[in-house]
Amino acid sequence: MSILLFKITLLSYLAASCGYLVYIASGRCTAEKIGRWLIRGGFVLHCATLALRFFEAGYTPVANLHESLSFFAWCITGIFLLFDLRYGLAVLGAFLSPLALLLMVIGNAVPQQLAQPSPILDSWWFPLHVSLAFLGNAFFAIAFIAGVMYLLQERMLKSKRLSALFFRLPSLDTLDTLNYRCLTWGFPLMTMGIISGAAWANSTWGSYWRWDPKETWALISWFVYAALLHGRLAIGWRGRRAALLAIIGFLCLLFTFLGVNLLLSGLHSFEALSGR
């Protein structure tokens, strides 16, 4: 049942992405409005999907790749909707809805059966750790998108070749502010995510830090964002450099999230989680 809802959610994200892309290409405000309502509708469905999955599984549904991708997409969409309410940045939707869609499409392609019940999933640290980590990641995803938009807009301003996209993209200043906002939210969340993970590890395995690949890569990403935050506050990094670092940081995060699970193995692999 939750799988069916998941697929409907995916379709509404697909439709929202189309709406936003039509807006970008043609500048039609109706397309943007349709896109916005579709992504809102998709988000509500997504909430239902997660709730249903929670009852079906009996644990916070972030225990396998499919569930994690879905949860990540949910966080990104939710935070985007908050930003959209606050700042009304329609173009952001045009970049973000395809990202959410991509995560959902991968999530749709991987095995979707429930994880085996396992004692470590019973701990309260589990939902706390994954929620903090994914919320932080979602803010960084938006910082990443703002970074991409910044580089595009800067490229057009510098080269003086203005395409239709130029007229829809927000100003450099807005994008840079967005980058900073996401950083100030994402960084504390990520830090708390790592700390709660360490606490969970201590209660389950008896040690705080074991240098498994996921932990190492999370730490690398954390350092990238720490450097960016420090650079912004102390040295006056901004604009292009901040945008580039937000992009690099997010690529590290993506590797931490997907690459480590798919390419390397360790305590965080979903097999280890489900106790197989």
Binding site: G27, C29, L157, F166, F167, L169, S171, L172, T174
Partner: peptide, 25 residues
């Protein structure tokens, strides 16, 4: 209000202002 017909600047000084707004908001 429903088309972008009047959105883009078409004089030198207007276009300078528009560009400035794309940089500074």
């Amino acid at each position: 209000s429903e088309t972008t017909i009047a959105c883009q600047a078409v004089s030198i000084s207007y276009s300078a202002v528009e560009l400035a707004r794309k940089i500074f908001g």
